[in-house]
Design a protein around this nucleic acid. Structure first.
Lengths: 167, 167
DNA sequence: GGCATTTATATCGCGTGCGATATAATCGCA
DNA sequence: TGCGATTATATCGCACGCGATATAAATGCC
């Protein structure tokens, strides 16, 4: 009789603590990348119940955050701030336009550019989104200082990666 | 004559340093989430030229890393370790099967499960992938200690998010 | 033993993300 | 001024990633 191949079944409560499954198989920086990758998805799952009632996805929410701060931006401007390409933003903005959150209009002064503006409905979403920051903060369980420090380190890492890509 | 709305054009070299574009518009933990989101994509762009010659995507590479360490795993096992759903893994594994990297076979002892195994070609990719860890480490520009510490903090954050989602 | 429940995987639809490419407008410079 | 280079956006094809749902196998409980 063969010995059991794996004592843990899939939904064993200890499975989630199997945190280091990837550890010994990846280089240190690769494991860091995997941590970013999987945590980014976990954040998406936390955001979803907060954004669903507003009819928004996460990147759509980011676009609105930028427009709430500074209305009337070009596609390229939004892309630079969000690190997204026009091939991602154009369809996304069209969906937001179809949903009635923004308008898209060629800039008469430079017909290459498309200016994105909030509709009244898009502006009105701001108050409905006011509860989101608190929801995210609760889920993260980090102190303000820890969150600030982690954010700064990860942002610096992104800058390093971007420089490597450009150079 | 109207004043220019924005002194920076899109490709101004200072644009990348416009790091804090999202800062004052997002809560602290939300900005941390955005840092994770954008840095995760940046890592993907660093991985791409390393993985393209192997004909692999990033999640496909992660599957291979797991199988190189421990061959013959179920779909659920891989999903638990990668934090991915079967709705993501099943098509991905089918593509890897079509590419000749793995085989998928129902476990005779439990026909619900599908066991994923390396083919000789999949095993052979391991040596071709040997240069990847160094390439990632160079791009990150972090010391071993910094990478380790950052990874640990982000992994802890993911655990906190997962607990929040479960509870 | 039989039947409801649980578990493992698969399928579907949708929204990203991106590289490659296309198109149109503007710029630069001889 | 004119025309090649650059810039801004759009389009296309592909691969995720997930929630909802379906299906089939195993489990549990009487």
């Amino acid at each position: 009789m063969p010995a059991p191949k794996d004592l843990r079944t899939r939904k064993d409560p200890g499975a989630a603590a199997d945190t280091a499954a990837m550890d010994h198989a990846l280089g240190r920086d690769e494991f860091l990348c995997f941590a970013l990758y999987s945590t980014s998805h976990a954040f998406g799952r936390v955001y979803k119940p907060l954004l669903d009632p507003l009819g928004l996805t996460y990147p759509q929410y980011l676009v609105l955050v930028l427009l709430w701060d500074h209305d009337d931006q070009t596609v390229g401007n939004l892309g630079d701030k969000l690190f997204l390409e026009s091939s991602t933003l154009t369809p996304l903005l069209k969906r937001m336009e179809a949903a009635g959150h923004v308008t898209r209009r060629r800039d008469p002064a430079d017909e290459r550019q498309v200016r994105v503006r909030l509709t009244p409905a898009g502006r009105a979403l701001r108050s409905k989104a006011a509860r989101i920051p608190r929801g995210i903060a609760e889920a993260s369980g980090l102190s303000l200082d820890d969150a600030r420090r982690l954010q700064a380190e990860i942002t610096a890492l992104r800058t390093s990666l971007d420089r490597h890509l450009a150079g």
